[in-house]
Design a binder for these strands. Structure first.
Lengths: 305, 305
DNA sequence: TTGTAGGCGTTATCAG
DNA sequence: CTGATAACGCCTACAA
């Protein structure tokens, strides 16, 4: 692999000039410029990213750490982030983490110079203290200007409104297991019920592994079912089928968090705009904390077909 | 951030000795060793990966390029690969590619020194010429010792055997659109039918976007349906439900390629062992081409519940 | 407009 | 067992 010395030799200029030409800086005679380009071409020269990194003290690598639990949910993020990062000439270094210790360990790499910054996605565990160059998306941290959160309450309320408009008045809820998110969802659920003057029946609200089983065991009628995400939705579809309950005829299932493109989701859902999220993340990485403005992101209603 | 000079100064030894201590090479007096460790601790010194890379001419980064089409299918791979790479102290640099040009462009990075090697996954387009340090998994390339392929024929045959054992004798097939894979699947399908002395009815075999629609339009009865992957399976489940056909009572859906862990898949499927695949990939990256042995990988039958 | 020289943080070689 | 010293490949003042 040819290096900058080979090029400078062949082009009969100094390394500095070669560097100048390649970094596009002005103040280079057209003649030398052409000579360099020529040499670069014939030698198939590509500057070494590593050497560049050592010099500039910046690698262009962004670490992305996904919570392993909701991998399927995070695939969409990865795709969107990679696209956006590439637009900004950056690389995506992927990691998974299952707990705070694992996350902390991964974040430690950053201090070793490999990544310029990191993005943590969807962690449902308590976060360890994080350096300044780490931003979070949909994690369990208090609102900071370096984190992106979703408006779960709004999602739940919107969902209720939708199913109510579809003539469903008995809305069951399978809630998330986590405190913060679950709290918000419950809040939105309550607000919607109040708004429509519907009573709150605690027997319609469950969470955890056995949530749907418990719900079905209660024998309380319901014709709509809100679930926290796509995975739960899929699970619900299967279980409902087993119990002979037609979807959506008998029960309308609604996913409160979907990253599937509109029209693809099997059930009505609140979807979060991945491109926008990715762009916001880029802005945060670039230090434009105003881009976030602290407000949680509101998803939008997405209906199949 | 402290560097090796700071450490050597504090420990009152040379940089060389510091380096030796940290790279674990023996031949260092216990005394100096301790002094170094001490200094490292108090200075919170972490060697710079970049500088190491420049010296050793190897970054420990492995580029993983996923075909964007089947992202959902590839999530499992990513997780397994990341785990395995981490065991080998390597980093996973993620990219997506939609076509040969994009792939070629991404592979080009490798020549710039960022990645030591690359893995291309699930590309359904014709591959551009690839350097030696690139291996492929489930791609459209002829068998080489640097590629991992799946035995589609075996999958189809196994699937047929399974549904036949379940008493289904009218097996419809929604085939992949791609030539190579589709050919193998069809072959396995044929072989199974022959083995069980069943007639081949071409009206039961379709492919492409409208495959299931066409199949249903034919009005030819079928009580089993083989589909190429999980995405198709999900799609099929939805469409069948719309047509009032119960699954699995009326139609048993079978996915010919699933990466879901056994027991999670919603339908019976042929699953490919991700850990094993990841390990094989590592071996190939390490240059142990014998690990592959050229034989396509056979999946195993996985039944829900 | 150009070249020289020094620095980025390691590893590796080679005397001592 | 240890310490200079030279790579590694690039960037960038600074000087010409």
């Amino acid at each position: 692999m040819a290096n900058i010395n080979d090029v400078s030799r062949l082009a009969k200029v100094s390394k500095a000039t070669v560097s100048r030409v390649l970094s596009g800086s002005r103040g280079v005679k057209e003649e030398s410029r052409l000579a360099v380009m020529q040499a670069v071409e014939t030698l198939q020269y590509k500057p070494s990213v590593i050497a560049q990194s050592l010099s500039t003290q910046s690698t262009g690598c962004i670490g992305v750490i996904c919570a392993a639990e909701n991998i399927n949910q995070s695939t969409g993020y990865l795709h969107a982030l990679e696209k956006e990062l590439r637009l900004n000439q950056k690389y995506l270094l992927l990691r998974f983490a299952t707990d705070a210790a694992g996350l902390a360990h991964s974040v430690n790499e950053i201090g070793r110079g490999l990544c310029d910054a990191m993005i943590v996605i969807g962690a449902r565990f308590e976060l360890p203290p994080l350096p300044e160059n780490v931003i979070t998306i949909d994690c369990l941290d208090e609102d900071s200007d370096r984190s992106i959160h979703f408006d779960r309450s709004f999602a739940a309320e919107t969902a209720c409104q939708y199913v109510l408009q579809q003539g469903r008045r008995q809305i069951a809820l399978i809630n998330a297991e986590n405190g913060e998110t679950a709290g918000q969802i419950l809040q939105g659920y309550h607000q919607a019920l109040e708004k429509f003057l519907l009573p709150y029946d605690r027997r319609l609200v469950h969470s955890g592994e056995q949530a749907l089983t418990q719900l079905l065991a209660q024998n309380v009628p319901f014709n709509a079912l809100l679930v926290p995400d796509d995975a739960s939705a899929q699970d619900a579809l299967r279980q409902l089928a087993q119990h002979g309950r037609a979807v959506p005829a008998s029960v309308m299932v609604f996913s409160l968090d979907s990253t599937l493109p509109p029209g693809i989701s099997a059930v009505p859902a609140i979807t979060y705009p991945l491109e926008t999220l990715a762009q916001t993340a880029m802005a945060l990485l670039a230090g434009q904390f105003s881009a976030n403005a602290g407000a949680p992101v509101r998803g939008q209603l997405s209906i199949p077909f």
